[in-house]
Amino acid sequence: MNLQSVKTLYLAEMARSLRTLLQSVISPVISTSLYFVVFGAAIGTRISEVDGVSYGAFIVPGLIMLMLLTQSVSNASFGIFFPRFSGSVYEILSAPMSYVEVVIGYVGAAASKSMLLGLIVLLTARLFVPYSIEHPLMMLVFLVLTAVTFSLLGFIIGIWADGFEKLQLVPLLVITPLTFLGGTFYSIDMLPPFWQTVTLANPVVYLVSGFRWSFYGISDVSPLVSLLMILLFLSVALAVLSWIFKSGYRLKP
């Protein structure tokens, strides 16, 4: 493992994010507060409790997931798309680094940043509602696995995209709707039976459910199923990436 190269790439990517530090930190704080005002205060007065947890506390894990998914995808996709777009990717591709090392640098940085933002959301939520974390270790496991998996997805999108439109299309048309429909703001028990079944096809359901379980011990699907699903997504992302590198798709003619 060429640690020096990986470290350099990772730190440069982190530095790129930190150049816009203020905006990176302020926007999740503001959006989280807005969600609490709108969902917590407005809806929370009607739905007082879900499975014995106050509605405000109930949506905290979902909000963190929302932040984690969107940020992982957008950071990682931009991270690799931009050098491709500007042409400076030649340097990465001609460096004495393996593909695995390149991915660790980019995806590691994207995942780190989104986890950091996830934690900021967690802290911001504290201003609005008290919550507890029943399984802190599992909470971290879900956090890391989700951030890494979706950063890999973002990295793949950043290689696939051949323009800014495509780069924004996937987060906008896929990630955001799936997150909103994935039980972020409700328990899927609240849906009619037909929609409960349909919802199970949404991968985000498993992420949110498992993550919420690590907070309150309540879940829509078993936490073990959630964990297995995340590992499945991770394997799929890794398989796609390894195909990309083997075939040279969009990187090496």
């Binding site: 350099t8 400076s88 004495p96 680094m97």
Partner: peptide, 22 residues
Amino acid sequence: ELTSEAFTTVWDTVSFSRGLFG
């Protein structure tokens, strides 16, 4: 082709290249 990460400084981008090559 001229390529560059517009927002980095000369010093940073050159140091980056060194680190990238291990």
